[in-house]
Structure formats: C-alpha cells, structure tokens
Simulated assay, not measured.
Amino acid sequence: MPGDVNDGFVWAYSQHGGYTVKTGYDLIVQGKMETAGQISPQELTRIELKKRVWKIPTLPKIRMFLWRVISGAVAVADRLNSRGLGVDPTCRLCNNGVETINHVLFQCTTASQIWADVDVALPARVLQHSLEENVAYVFDAMQDLSKTETVRRSIPWVLWLIWKNRNSVIYAHVQESLERLLRVMFEEVEQWFELNKVQPTRTDMNTRLEGDDIWRPPEDGGIKCNIHANWRNAHLHSGVAWVARDQRGNVLYHARDAITHAPNRFVAELRCVLWSLSSLRDLGVSRVTVAVDYHEVIEALKKPQQWPRYRILLEKIRNLKEEFDSLDFEEEKILTNRIARDIAKSVLRDGRFQSYLALGGPSWLHDRIAGETIRSDV
C-alpha cells in the first residue's frame, strides 16, 4: 500500500500478521493433508491427543513429557536405533520385548505393576494396542467417574513416575520401593491440586463484584476517553463513539459517527482510535487516557511491531500520539464501557448515521452517566 510506512514482512496465516509456532504448525499439518490427500487415522489420533495434553491439569514439565511421548520423541532403544545408534533393543527392566515407548509405559511388567497399584488395571486387549490407543485409554480414564478423584488426578503423574523410575534403574542403578514412590507421588498430586485450587474468600468476591461495575476516573488534570466501534460484518457500516470525562466523572464531550466497511472488528476499532484522537487533538486536549474494551487492540497499541498486518493504521496512531503531552491506552471492562458502547450501537440500531460532536453527555443516557459519576466518587 502506498504511504510513508516502510515495506515489511507479513505472515498471512495469523490475525496480527506476525509468525507464531502454532500457525506454522497448523500450516504444515494442512500441507501434509493436501499432499497426502487424506491424513492417516493414526496421525489424526496423534494430533487430537496432542490437543488434549495441554488441557490436562498437571505440571508443565509433565505436559511437555506427554507431548513428547505422543510425538515419539522419547529416547528409548527403539527410537535411538531408528537414528542409527545401534543399541541393544531389549527392555532392560523386564528383558522381555523391544524397548519402545509403548512397551516402557504400558507393556513392561514394571509399568503394569504400577498401573495395577494405582487401580488403573490395563486389560490385556489394551496392552496389545498401539501407543496412541493406550494413551487415549488412560486419558479417557481421567474422566471415568467410576474411579476415585485421587486416581483420576494422578494418571499424568503415573506416566511420569514410570519414566523416571525406568531412568533411575538404567542410568543411576537405583531401584526404590514402588510403594514409597507411589506414596510420594500421591502426596505431590494432592499438594499440586491444593496449591492450584482457586478459592476466593467472601471478602475477595464482594470486592470484585463491587468493583467490576465502577467506572474509574482519570488522574487529576487529565481526561479519560472511552471509545467503542460497533462492528457487525464486513458489508455494513460500523457505528463508532467516544465519551470524554474528567476526574470527577463529568462528561466534557461525546461524539458519534458511522464509518465505512471494515474487514473485521479489529480494523474498525483502530479506525475508531484514530478518529477519537483526531477529534481530541482538534479540541485542544493535551492529556488523555483512551479506554478500549478490546484486549487485542490494547496489545497492538503497546507492541505495534508484533502486529505487522496493521502497521499502517498503527503508524498513524503513533504519529498522532506525538501531538499530545500525555497519551495512554488502558483496557476497560465491557461492563464499565457501556456508555460508549450504547452510543455506538445506536448508529445501526436506530439508523443514526449523521455524525456529531457535543458538549456534555447525551440526554438519553443522563441517568446512567450520573450514576457512574456517583459511584466513581465513592
């Protein structure tokens, strides 16, 4: 696009235009599917299991271990030999069978004993299945209400314990009592869930409920400008509005307008920021805090280099920012941005496409503005 902004790279497969590992991985998977015509059932199962891993309530290191297990990236004899290392393929714990990931975690006699001791007996038919099927079986067991909560919670730690015990025996030549290992494991599980349990006190809950619906005023000497862009789809106009208030909550100005088609809400919101800043500059405002209830917009305004797709709009905002003595952006809750939201919604809802800039607040929202002013003084 012509302009004063330097050319740059944009990653077409993310919202912000910057590369992320997730979008890169998704693109590779999609490419494999298109090349092969159809992804294999085993690979599809593997992908679904990887998605489940990151939702499992456990330690981050255990989640990473489980991801490596499903990816086949665990250093057992079978995997090492596939890389040309030429090690003895026999399992060194039971001396019975090839040491694969599936064998170590499910088929080895030591693993079977540990699973039995935690009351997750693996049926013989399960043991003969593939690694993906066995992992899916124990993942499903975490939702099996016929088992105790302690057992369901412990399953990720059991897999980790089996692996750690195998390494301890092979490399450190130490074999601890399985009974003791399991006791320590259960204690760790209980402690982890206790530390990660959210139990807000009554006082905390009351404070949160009382504070969530309160509009927070700006610092003395500045004004706070709440903005909103009411975007519905790429084919309709968007309603935009801003409301500027002082530290006592009094409305100094408010404005409304309709902007032409925007491809998404993000662009509409950035254009709303530009419009509101231009208006405030023309009014001679020098110190302002712009409040937005769209988290991604706040992130883009704080770190524009990470949103190259929208660099032209962000560069325009940056240039406007230099014309103010003080300009900050803060994230506003939807609940406390309702005045600006209602004014913006009135554009499409009531067909109010004529723009305006007015002193004070709109009469039809007078009572709500007054109510927020009273609460902000409390």
Rank of each mutant, 00 (worst) to 15 (best):
D4S: 11
V5H: 11
D7I: 05
D7G: 12
F9Y: 13
Q15S: 05
Q15N: 02
Y19D: 08
T20S: 14
G24T: 07
L27K: 15
I28E: 06
P41M: 02
P41Y: 00
L49R: 14
L49V: 01
P60F: 01
P60I: 04
G72D: 09
G72P: 02
A77C: 08
D78V: 06
R79N: 15
L80H: 03
S82G: 05
T90N: 10
C94T: 07
F106K: 09
C108I: 09
T109A: 04
W115Y: 05
A124E: 13
A124I: 04
E133Q: 14
A141N: 08
Q143S: 14
V151H: 04
P156R: 01
L159H: 07
W160P: 00
I162Y: 03
N167I: 03
I170M: 10
V174Q: 08
E179S: 12
R183H: 11
V189E: 06
K197D: 11
P200C: 08
T201Q: 03
T203H: 09
L209S: 10
G211R: 07
D212P: 00
P217T: 12
E219K: 14
D220G: 00
I227W: 11
I227G: 00
N230A: 14
N230T: 09
R232I: 13
R232T: 15
N233K: 06
H237Q: 15
H237P: 12
R245H: 04
R245E: 02
R248H: 06
V251S: 05
R256G: 03
R256H: 07
P263W: 12
N264W: 09
F266G: 04
V267I: 15
A268W: 12
L277T: 09
S278F: 10
R281P: 01
L283W: 07
G284M: 06
V288L: 03
V288N: 02
T289Y: 00
T289V: 13
R311N: 13
R318C: 03
L320Y: 07
E323M: 04
F324Q: 02
L327V: 04
E331W: 12
E332Q: 14
T336S: 07
I339E: 02
R341I: 04
L348E: 11
R349F: 00
R349Q: 15
L359Y: 10
S363C: 03
D367Q: 14
A370F: 06
A370T: 13
